[in-house]
Simulated scan of single mutants.
Amino acid sequence: MFYDLNVPWTANDTGLPRTLNFLYELGYSVVALNYILIGKLPNELSCAIPNPLPYKDLPSKLEIRRRITVTLTDSLQNARLNALAAQYDILALRPTDEKTLQLACGSLDCDIISLDLSQRFPFHFKIKTLTEAIKLGKKIEICYGHGLLGDSQGRRNLISNVTQIIRATRSRGLIISSEAKGAVACRGPWDAINLSAVWGLGQERGYEAMTKEARNALVGAQLKRSSFRGVINVVHGGEKPAPEVKAGATEKKGEAQKQKGQMTNGQGANGQKRKSDALGSETNDSGSGIPMSKTQMKKRAKKEKMEAESKAAKSTGDAKSN
């Protein structure tokens, strides 16, 4: 899956549906619409990009995310960045000088650090500053759109700045985006990878910048908003579910009890007589159907013999008397 995490969004842009369709045809699976905020944060924080989008005939398989890029001009206006980040899928910061760059790479919490590489910066990108941002999980964004549609001076600044960033980051923690304001500035994923290879980024690192690193930025931003400190994601609180009463459970229970009662009355599980009853074993005097023991059978035989003898003696006495 290829990612393009920087497609500028404006409310009156009529060419945006054409740009999204063209990006999908080029092979991109995930596209992030970027809303750029300049100046102080508004009093009421809300997502400026509507959901769902008011466009028709968009590719159904194209995954669209919402991103905001805050231009850093003053360190005092960023006290509510966390509340602003909760309204979007991705939070990006755009430093304008060395002080704000150090602030974005260090203390400020964001997902992507996006620089306007078409302008000339009066400072050099330091290895320590950018490495600190990468260790914190922040990604450095390289946008090629300015180099395609800008003037010659902008292209020279873009190449110079990208070369410095690749050197300072040692080709790690980079993502490549288009920042295309129209379909004309869009390029295929492999074209962008080859272009980055010309600037000094290896082809393998360029492929990771458009797939693995971009996905890590998106997933990391989602974990920050849906988990505890980006480490623990509570899926289930451990509550004991209520027992489910299935249909026909009472009938099955009654049948089981009935079958058990039949087995205790001398019948097996299939309703047949037991083996001892089949062989003609006698039952107890109580009539419960339980076979008698050998001692009880001997006592019963002795009793029947005595009764027979007494009857015989009585009949003999009656005969003599007559």
Rank of each mutant, 00 (worst) to 15 (best):
G154Y: 03
K299N: 14
P42W: 02
K246L: 15
I127P: 00
G202Q: 07
K314D: 05
N21Y: 01
K260T: 08
F22P: 01
P8A: 01
I175Y: 02
K299G: 07
L62A: 04
L72C: 13
G230D: 09
K305V: 07
S196Q: 09
I112P: 00
A214K: 01
G147D: 05
D111R: 09
G206V: 09
Q119I: 11
T96C: 09
V70C: 09
T163M: 07
K181V: 05
G237F: 12
T316K: 14
G280R: 12
K303M: 09
S107Y: 03
R187M: 10
L103C: 01
L62R: 06
N157C: 07
W9R: 08
A32Q: 00
A313Q: 14
Q257R: 15
A180T: 02
G106Q: 08
R67M: 03
G147Y: 03
I232T: 13
I165N: 01
Q257V: 14
K320H: 03
A278V: 15
V231L: 11
D191E: 14
P95Y: 04
T96Y: 05
R66V: 00
D97C: 11
E239Y: 13
D111H: 10
G220I: 02
S118V: 04
T163S: 10
R187Q: 11
T71A: 03
S60G: 01
E239G: 13
V235K: 15
Q257I: 15
T10P: 01
L223H: 06
M210P: 03
E141Y: 05
H124R: 14
L195S: 12
Q262K: 14
I134D: 07
L103H: 05
H146I: 08
